[in-house]
Structure formats: structure tokens, C-alpha cells
């Protein structure tokens, strides 16, 4: 269940393939769920040039380990891989990779969703973007994992 912080760019899809082959578990899993978060060139109405990701050495790794342990306790995941960039990030770089392997798709998908939502809500990372007129901290947070359906569309009867 590796969790790694990467200061250098990585190819998330190649990492999934490499790790899956290293598992030596062919036939044991029927589902691989992969989430890849990438660096956009726009955010909140502004063009973004690049970004720096700060973290809390020690706590960040500890928190990601704990999220993965929780996911494994809650869903039948055979294995989980989490990679997250730190430092300077360029447009279209892969920022985060979450992959979960399971016998069945539901467990793989739910574990992946839980990990990325909890990571975004609680893991100690902070983004600072370079925009046209300087730098700015990203302030928006997300509310964590929820399986609640979207509220009804008020325009429909």
C-alpha cells in the first residue's frame, strides 16, 4: 500500500501499469480504479502559469497512510497506490494518483473516491498559483467524501 510524495514529475498511467505488474496478483483482482488529478491552466477565472505545492513533511505522509488504512478497513481493496507531487508543478503535470485494486468494481471505486475526497479535505497540502499579476494561495476547500445524491433540479417537476 505505497504512499509517496514526488518532487519530480511522474507519468501516472505508467506508474499504475508498473505497480500493477509488480503486484503479481493476476487473477485475484477484477477491478482497477484510477483517479488522476492534473494541473489545469485556469482556475477561478484566471489563467494559471504554474504552481507550487507546499506540504508538512511527516504529517502529510502520516495522514495519507491513515486514509489508506481507513479505506482498506471499509472496502475490500486488495491494494492501494497513492502518489502526490510536491514542489513546483507545471501545466498538465500529473498532481495526484490514487489507484485501488479489488475483486469487484464497487469496492475499488468507493475506496478511490473516499481517498481523494478525504485527501482534498484534510491532507496538509497547500497550493500557490502563479497568475499574470503575481502569486496567490488557493483558498477553496472541499467538504470531503459524501455519497449523498445531488439535490433535485428545481426546474423539473
Amino acid at each position: 500500500m505505497p504512499v509517496e510524495l514526488r518532487p519530480a514529475p511522474f507519468d501516472a498511467l505508467a506508474e499504475v501499469k508498473r505497480y500493477q505488474e509488480s503486484l503479481g496478483a493476476a487473477g485475484k483482482f477484477g477491478a482497477t480504479c484510477v483517479f488522476i488529478g492534473k494541473m489545469r491552466d485556469f482556475n477561478e477565472g484566471e489563467e494559471i502559469r504554474d504552481m507550487t505545492l507546499e506540504h508538512y513533511p511527516g504529517m502529510t505522509e502520516k495522514h495519507l497512510d491513515e486514509i489508506c488504512r481507513q479505506a482498506k478497513g471499509q472496502w475490500r481493496a486488495l491494494d492501494i497506490l497513492v502518489l502526490h507531487r510536491v514542489g513546483r508543478i507545471e501545466i498538465s503535470d500529473d498532481i495526484v494518483l490514487i489507484a485501488a485494486w479489488s475483486a469487484h468494481r464497487g469496492d475499488a471505486m468507493d475506496a478511490t473516491r473516499f481517498i481523494i475526497e478525504d485527501l482534498k479535505h484534510k491532507a496538509p497540502f497547500w497550493k500557490k498559483e502563479t497568475v499574470k499579476n503575481g502569486e496567490r494561495w488557493v483558498e477553496k476547500n472541499t467538504s470531503g467524501y459524501s455519497t449523498r445524491p445531488a439535490p433535485p433540479d428545481k426546474n423539473k417537476n
Partner: peptide, 10 residues
Amino acid sequence: VAFFPPVTGG
């Protein structure tokens, strides 16, 4: 003890 703003990873 660490003090920090809301987190924004992922």
C-alpha cells in the same frame, strides 16, 4: 504545534 490555513491538495 503547527498552525496552517485550510488545505488545498489533490
